[in-house]
Design a protein around this nucleic acid. Sequence first.
DNA 1: CAGTGGTCTAGACCACACC
DNA 2: GTGTGGTCTAGACCACTGT
Lengths: 252, 252
Amino acid sequence: MAEQGSVRRTKYQRIATELRDAIQAGEYAPGDRLPGENELMAAYNVARMTARQALGVLQNEGITEARKGAGVFVRSFRPLRRHGIQRLSGGNWGSGQSIWSADLGERALVVDRVEVTERTAPEHVATALGLSPTATVCVRSRRFVLDGKPVQTAVSYLPSELVAGSAVTHEDTGPGGTYARLAELGCKPVRFREELRSRMPSTEEATELGLSSGTPVIQICRTAFAEGGRAVEFSELTLDSASYVLEYEFDA
Amino acid sequence: MAEQGSVRRTKYQRIATELRDAIQAGEYAPGDRLPGENELMAAYNVARMTARQALGVLQNEGITEARKGAGVFVRSFRPLRRHGIQRLSGGNWGSGQSIWSADLGERALVVDRVEVTERTAPEHVATALGLSPTATVCVRSRRFVLDGKPVQTAVSYLPSELVAGSAVTHEDTGPGGTYARLAELGCKPVRFREELRSRMPSTEEATELGLSSGTPVIQICRTAFAEGGRAVEFSELTLDSASYVLEYEFDA
DNA sequence: CAGTGGTCTAGACCACACC
DNA sequence: GTGTGGTCTAGACCACTGT
């Protein structure tokens, strides 16, 4: 009880630190239940809001997750691996191993929702595609689900002038998908630029991806270029950061 | 359908939503001061903790920042652009434009702290480098600062057996840096694998990078391979997600 | 049903920023 | 000094989860 002078931190920080250390020491495994608000109030002789604040620290760090009516639990990190560059042509690269388990396993990443519309291009899309501000684009919105859990949303924009009347404007784009259709139209993507950033999700994104507090998203803006440098597709992907590891492999 | 949902929520969510909408509508520009706790208490007739909770929502979304004794302010996003693949050989790629302003400008990214040590390889490092668990590695820790603000930390691990006695083990690795020294040792890196994830920072990382609440970090684990596939360097980079946009450009 | 986390109140003291 | 956000208390009611 008497520990005034050691470190100058606050009560909730001290509680949070002890819980975090216990987790990292393996005293609580992923999925385990942590002491709840009532237990912390009794164990540390603090008010409810103080115990809550301590638990909130861990939640905002993304290492725990609260389930209403059930308790607070240790989260796990079992990411999908997304290979940013597909040419995994079989070299012996990789005497060293990847850091995070691939875990792609046999679980299927399936499309949950598809929505195809046409509208005038948002400004940043028109800019990315090099279109006039009044041009229209085909907008393909999808959500991807893994084992019932949404992990990614994707919105692709393609110039209407390019894809009008093709299967790209259908929900089912047919064998080979959008890129195969673009190839048939003489605009096969041959080069890509991906711009990544990470940030906290909006409330809509958190809802749509089923994200708990303390989970950032990775936003990928990809532009696909055809031979000659024409931008033929612009995509905005939003990934649940707890579900993904991104991998890029390239030569010097 | 009707969008009655905006009225259904709790008090703090309603307050947060109104503030967020006001920000997105441009009523508050980046750097502007928002109504504080006292103002919100009066304006919405709520208790202090409720006003705080509303402001906490925006902070956790990373769109505002609280400065003790001063107020709550709208954050801005002015990222550096990190080109993951340096072969930016001047094609005409890019009829379309990048999404976020590059803003690299003339500001200098400088090394703030360097620390070089030697120790036995942590398990995941030994695995990544294909070393025995008892092997020792040269550990180079650095912090990078932009305009006085820390934006990245980097820890590189190189096999001791490879770099012992070379300038790699000095704080100043000389012209061309570590990779030039590796080349001289006959182990020039010719291929790289970068594994990225995003997560909330630990408290140490938040302190070291000066991150405010609601700012994730991007963690990059890079393995450098020499000709023949030998892993010669493993690096762990931790980036302030508010300071970076990552770009990867590659052929299909 | 009992127990959990989520929301909310109405006070209080503190450290810090700005004037 | 005054006002700010940060911490903390001691209550309360609610919605939800589990059994």
